[in-house]
Computed example of a mutant assay.
Amino acid sequence: MDKTNLLIIVTVISLFISLFLAFFLVTVKTKNKLSNSIFALFLLITVVDTIEPLFNLMFDGPSNLGMLRNTFAFLQIPVFYLYIVSVCYSDFKFKPKHLGHLLPFLIVNTVLVARFYAVDLASKINFINNRQDMIEIQFTHILFHLQTAVYIIAVFMLLRKAKKLYLENYAGTSVTSYNWLFQFTIVLTVLYLITLFKNIFKFSDYPYISEWIKIGLLVFQLLIICWYLFKALNHPDLFRNIDSKLKLVSDIISEEENSELAVNEEVYQEELLKLKMYMTEEKPFLNPSLTIQDVSAAIQIPVRDLSILINHKLEQHFYDFINTYRIENAMTILRDNAKSKVTVLEILYEVGFNSKSSFNMAFKKHTGQTPTDYRKNL
């Protein structure tokens, strides 16, 4: 089997699976409808980008439709960025400003009008045959890789901020969702780096290497999409959105210093005592979905002040602060001989965790041992 037939077979398989997954994401009933729809759009744009071998079988020679299909690659990474934003923030909605993400796509197609879209077939053929010398093609490739680099950096910065906001304001055990998004972005970054090498070979004296890389990319791309969706669909509670209006404590402190509204130390001590009494007597940490807003409402301390108290004064994320109480409670149960038959799994649910991996990680961070080892060493 030659590489052309292999490329077509791989393309057909990738096309079928991607379209099936996109259809499933659009039609499945879920509260994450917007995020699913954006990811489905990402899959469809990916299909348009990878369908080239089949497109070339149906159309002989260069065409406006074929060039437009090529430029759809400029929509792929912006749509992925919007997907990440929609997953991270619960109040995400499409706004007119998001149309700005179309700008590179529109610029590229505008640049191609004069010497490709608006000319006859012979001129199109000449343009493609001499593409290595065409400034429009060089500009397109430079812009594509620049766009990719900017958006990937933006995604990593967004995930870093979102994770920090989650840790400062939430005590659920779904912080691993940001780790999964981070991993998925790393894999996509590797994919785009391979694409860069593919394009380098495409315009070199070894274009056949580019064809083999293209086959590998199709397979790799399909595998990572299936892996990601398998993980997300099997763990529907993996992604817990945060409110985009939340501010990082570092930003709040900066604003406070600038406005000279710092709360005196005596007030902080009173609030700290009130907080600790509430945690000890009411045990709100037993709620696996506890948020800083819940605690704020219960003890009547403004969220802003409570966030500064825990995240800045105590130098602990709210997430770690709550988990400390959960682990201490778990340690008490593990030391109780009357509860020696209670399993670790039962204990983690009892103290407010809903994930064995996050419980083990938090327990080991707090004690230096796993829960099982801690019980054995008593």
Rank of each mutant, 00 (worst) to 15 (best):
D305G: 10
S174T: 14
L6C: 06
S37I: 14
T324S: 05
D91I: 10
G100V: 10
V108R: 03
D320N: 03
K161V: 04
K95R: 09
K313D: 00
F116K: 02
Y178H: 15
M277L: 06
A114C: 00
L165P: 00
D91A: 10
T110M: 08
D120Q: 03
M1N: 08
I224Y: 11
I45R: 03
F42W: 08
T185A: 14
R115D: 15
N130Y: 01
L102H: 07
V303H: 07
D205H: 02
Q300R: 10
T332Q: 05
F16I: 15
A149G: 11
V263E: 11
Q76E: 09
L75I: 06
L121H: 12
Y81V: 12
V111P: 03
W227N: 08
I13K: 01
I253S: 04
I242N: 03
R326F: 00
Y178C: 13
L345A: 11
L146D: 07
N199G: 11
V303C: 06
L121C: 06
R69F: 08
I17Q: 01
S14G: 06
L193Q: 11
F139R: 04
D133R: 04
Q183A: 13
I347C: 02
T176M: 13
Y349F: 14
L6R: 02
A154Q: 06
G61D: 11
T291A: 05
K33V: 02
